[in-house]
Nucleic acid binder design. Structure first.
Lengths: 236, 236, 236, 236
DNA sequence: GATGAATGAGGATTCATTCAT
DNA sequence: TATGAATGAATCCTCATTCAT
């Protein structure tokens, strides 16, 4: 009974250059229509971000999102088959935006920098992004609640993977505190992600000096936690 | 948006021994009724704990709790004015039970033990308690979600205070990494609490060796984070 | 997530005689409560019958049924988990009522009466019942429409079985027009049921003389259709 | 409750050859547009037939029809003012197609053939047509359900009229079982139509040998029902 | 003509909470 | 006290229909 599934952007993406060239003029109209749709989607995602931030994912209602976006419920459902889909799409958008804005920072060229620098290089963009897009944090909190979690876990898993990769690249196997196995490394990654999540909660809830203080604490925690895994103690 | 009006049963629960003693002889019947009431409350709170664990606080329905307790919804509302009140009372009970079971550990006699021992002494009971009463963690996760959070925050604030007290007692002001001000100390306490929360999520979600590994990681994180606040580096 | 399922009457049925005797007085109250429930159920079923008759099963809305019954939607859902359940229960009730009212007619003692008498004996009660309970016909018309049919088909299958049984008992194997195999007999039963269904549509839609005429036609059709299966032609 | 306003495309469909001829030369463009329109209508009706068959008339959604036809909902509404109109038009088309394909059979040249032959001559095309166009049967099942029925009843009435005509032509007034009045004849016609409808349900739902068996049963029923109205019993 | 976005009332269903018994 | 029926607003979602482009 549910057969809708937006393909919009896919169409556009699949549109061959020739075709595009041929119908330059004529396609203005369709494009405008699509543009309207895209705008609505953006509008809805923005609204959803707001509602998710204010009420959390679980308590957010599709009607509330539609209202916030200034459209009718029906319109929302023309673009998203259900609440989950909104969250998923929003997660994707945010992730992509994160990449575009601070992507370089993550796939570091210079992992051999001293850990404090490395932490700055990684955490600062992450924190900045989360402060600008607090919905991201809200989305990550669908997890743990059964029946809501599944889709969101893609988000989690994605982040988890990335953190794990970073760690794997940084860790000095010879270091005394380094995780010995892959499993152990995964545990460390989970811990790091968890620490970042809680810290972000504190960071997002505060401002100014306090926020700065929490940021500093986060860096301190991670620095002290990870340093023994990376720095080989000098032979005495 | 949701008008709370908690209390009521709290009084009853807080009823001091003295009061009870005063009405010893004549009040057998009423006392029995009160005893029955206590039993009902315990029954309901147990049921609530189960439901909160399974579905999370937000998704838990009062009807489900009543059903799990084997009573009618009306009966539930005879003891609790609303859903929040159940959570609050449950939080209180759990906290009290925690005290009774592992209370000594917290109000430490021996804060001058080396930090690893101290962490064991504090964390092991906490972890044990949370594993036995997973509802505790579930309850702490109403937070952050506006409209649900307020009442739960009493729980948070309580824990936060306690952690802060512990820290204050442990920290060596002369240590290089020690928080300089009360505010800073509060921040550290928040971080510690946050780290414990996330770690508990991982710990509760796993079993056996994995659980042990996460416990070890939690201790490692806190050890490394707090050590510089406590240990004065030896003058070289 | 759906755990409700009335058991009410089951409880009552399971209630042991001793218990019942012991609590004769005391059970008045509970019984009254149950009585209220039963009354509501009856009320809702009556309302449903009305709505099904007027709008057909598919177009009937639970809200409409509740409104017709003069209760809120929530009340309806306290007794029935969904629309289908109402139809099923109503079907059951009607069937039972049919049994109670005209049951003898069906399990005939005198199958050896001449066919016209037999048809009268069987059809008159059926027709009377359908005229008094036009919802029955409405219920049988959920069939054929995919996604609605399944539950109703129990009704169909039940009737089909009964008609088949009757036929099997009546048919004279030696008769020239008699169905040779069980499959053939089943086909005949399907036809007979179908003829009854369509005829009932006409009968229910008319009144007075016209209704009588349609009843006569129905009997004529069946008489002429079935007679050769029952009557052995006299050897000439 | 539902304001219908059918017609519109009917005119266009009924456009006589003369009219078309008049505007032969100059109206190439408009004609093309009209041709396109006809194609669209055909496309939509085909889609509607499919959807009606699969989901039944009531559950069919205009959006689903448009999707099946590969056009937008707006386009659908450019040709049909509402859902009912689609059904009506489809009914008309099917009827017309029936005429074109098997029309001769109906307006019989040889009503004086023996009844079995006559039934074959009439029913075989009807059955064939319904098997090829199962939507026809689906359409006839909007009836009986108030608020949906009215428009469809044109279909019914049409068929009813035709059956009545046939009967009137066949019946031997002198036959002992013949209907005495017009009203009676109308009743017989209704019965015959009803029998055909139910039988078609069984026929359409089965295949191969079973289908053949049901076809045979249908003929048997009608033969036995109608024979006494047509055959004058030999004077003894 | 065609598109597809937009509408908004309506449908089924749930749930915190109240009330009569 | 305990019950369970009752409430009604709110939830998610659908659909016939309209409208701007």
């Amino acid at each position: 009974m549910r057969e809708t599934s937006r393909t919009k952007s896919a169409d556009k993406a699949g549109e061959s250059i020739t075709e595009a060239a041929l119908s330059a003029a004529a396609e203005t109209a369709p494009r405008r229509r699509q543009a309207r749709g895209e705008r609505r989607i953006a509008q809805l995602l923005t609204a959803a971000a707001g509602v998710f931030c204010r009420t959390g994912y679980a308590a957010a209602s599709t009607n509330a999102i539609a209202r916030e976006a200034g459209v009718s419920p029906g319109t929302l459902y023309q673009f998203f088959p259900n609440k989950e889909a909104i969250a998923v799409e929003l997660g994707g958008h945010l992730l992509q935006r994160a990449h575009e804005a601070h992507g370089r920072a993550f796939l570091l060229e210079n992992l051999d920098r001293p850990l404090p620098d490395l932490l700055d290089a990684v955490l600062d963009p992450v924190i900045a992004f989360n402060c600008e897009n607090p919905a991201f944090w809200a989305l990550m909190h669908g997890s743990g609640i059964p029946g809501i979690a599944q889709e969101h876990d893609e988000l989690h898993v994605g982040l988890q993977t990335r953190v794990e990769g970073l760690l794997r690249a940084c860790v000095t196997p010879a270091a005394s505190g380094a995780p010995a196995t892959d499993t152990e490394l995964a545990h460390v990654a989970h811990m790091v992600l968890g620490i970042m999540k809680t810290s972000l909660e504190l960071i997002l809830a505060s401002e100014g000096a306090e926020r700065a203080a929490y940021i500093a604490q986060l860096k301190t925690v991670l620095l002290r936690y990870l340093d023994p895994m990376i720095t080989t103690p000098p032979p005495h």
